[in-house]
Amino acid sequence: MGRISRADYRARASRAASALAGKTDELLTSLQAEMAILSARQEFERAMQMRDEIRALQHLQERQQVERSRSYDQDVISYQVEGSSVYLMLFRVYRGTLEGKEEYVFSNSDSFLEEFLVQYYSEREPPEELILEQPLEQSLVDFLAHQKGKKVKATVPRQGEKKMLLDLARKNLEAGFFGDREKLSALQEALRLNKSPQVIECFDISHLAGTFSVGSMVQFRGGRPDRGQYRRFKIKSVSGIDDFASLAETVRRRYSRLKEERQDMPDLIVIDGGKGQLSAALSELQALRLKIPIVSLAKREEEVYMPGLDGPLDIKKEEKASLYLQEIRDEAHRFALAYNRLLRKKAISD
């Protein structure tokens, strides 16, 4: 991030995003007040930097007025590949104004960008211009034009305002990515894992008084939910209330299939529950002869359990590692509950 602090870096990225979102008037007022405070404190160097930002913002404000008179839209895409994961940021720009941004994380492959664009624009109309870091194959540009109903331009800018948009998308991507790295690093250290837990799968069981029992599995990749990899399981071998047996069935079905298909295993498994749930899941992994790091998270005090230890790990529930586990567990619980409700709704309608 150069010589500026991470806080300043994020502040600048936030201000740039606000400017592109058309909030220039309130941003100018805020910056002018901040510049006056810096001058009063005799922090003249920072005040001059703020003055330059104000001038650039005023120039941008003038250009936005011109841009808004044009009726075209743009999508700006930046991405970063880290190991087996791709982190992608997409800016939606309409008439020179940033309308929104979307973040995605998914598995890396040789054709990941093409696959993403085909899936994304099969569900929504493409813009008139796509701004990217690398050129697209003509067949993909033709697909976008077909979806749009007219020509779509794919641009790889080297300078100018479009390059500034691309750089801003990159900065937002990096700002979010560094935050995810901190979570992963904290969890690896807290659990004393040999490698960073880039891919984590978490299991939860949901039922209504022993009926409509379901299992859920969510996957987090690189610190973010990878919803394309979520799985849900209708419990088949258990009747009545038996969370341990239901959890065992879910874990067995998930990893026996991955093993049979020779797919990659996760770096860490998280179980919603205490020592009993952990033991049930661990027994299934051992039966499959799989050695995957596994922990459980008990709801009441957010205690973290690992195999071979009598008590919970010394991790406070306010620590980053615990908060990340809670985030994953809560998502698994939400997903399981949603599936349980869906089954109940279908049963009522039938």
Results as ranks from 00 to 15, higher is better:
Val86Phe: 08
Leu130Tyr: 01
Tyr104Gly: 01
Phe44Pro: 08
Gly96Met: 03
Pro127Trp: 02
Leu113Val: 14
Glu45Gly: 12
Tyr120Lys: 14
Gln74Pro: 05
Ile54Arg: 03
Arg124Leu: 02
Glu115Phe: 01
Arg55Pro: 00
Ser85Val: 15
Ala56Gln: 14
Glu115Ser: 13
Arg70Ser: 01
Lys101Ser: 11
Arg124Ile: 04
Met48Gln: 12
Pro135Thr: 07
Gln58Ser: 08
Gln42Val: 06
Arg70Thr: 00
Tyr121Arg: 09
Ser107Thr: 13
Gln58Leu: 11
Ser71Gly: 01
Ser39Lys: 13
Arg124Asp: 02
Glu45Thr: 15
Arg70Lys: 09
Ser78Arg: 08
Arg124His: 02
Arg70Met: 05
Ser69Glu: 15
Pro135Lys: 04
Pro127Arg: 00
Leu113Glu: 08
Leu117Thr: 08
Leu140Arg: 09
Gln134Arg: 15
Ser71Met: 14
Glu43Trp: 05
Ser111Arg: 10
Glu103Gln: 14
Gly100Glu: 11
Gln64Ala: 07
Phe116Cys: 08
Asp75Phe: 05
Gln64Pro: 09
Glu53Pro: 03
Val141Asn: 07
Met48Tyr: 09
Asp75Pro: 13
Phe112Arg: 02
Glu129Val: 06
Glu125Thr: 15
Leu98Gln: 07
Asp73Gln: 11
Gln61Cys: 02
Gln65Tyr: 10
Glu115Gln: 15
Gln49Leu: 12
Gln42Trp: 01
Tyr104Glu: 08
Glu125Leu: 11
Tyr72Asp: 14
Gly96Asp: 06
Tyr120Ile: 03
Glu62Cys: 02
Val93Ser: 05
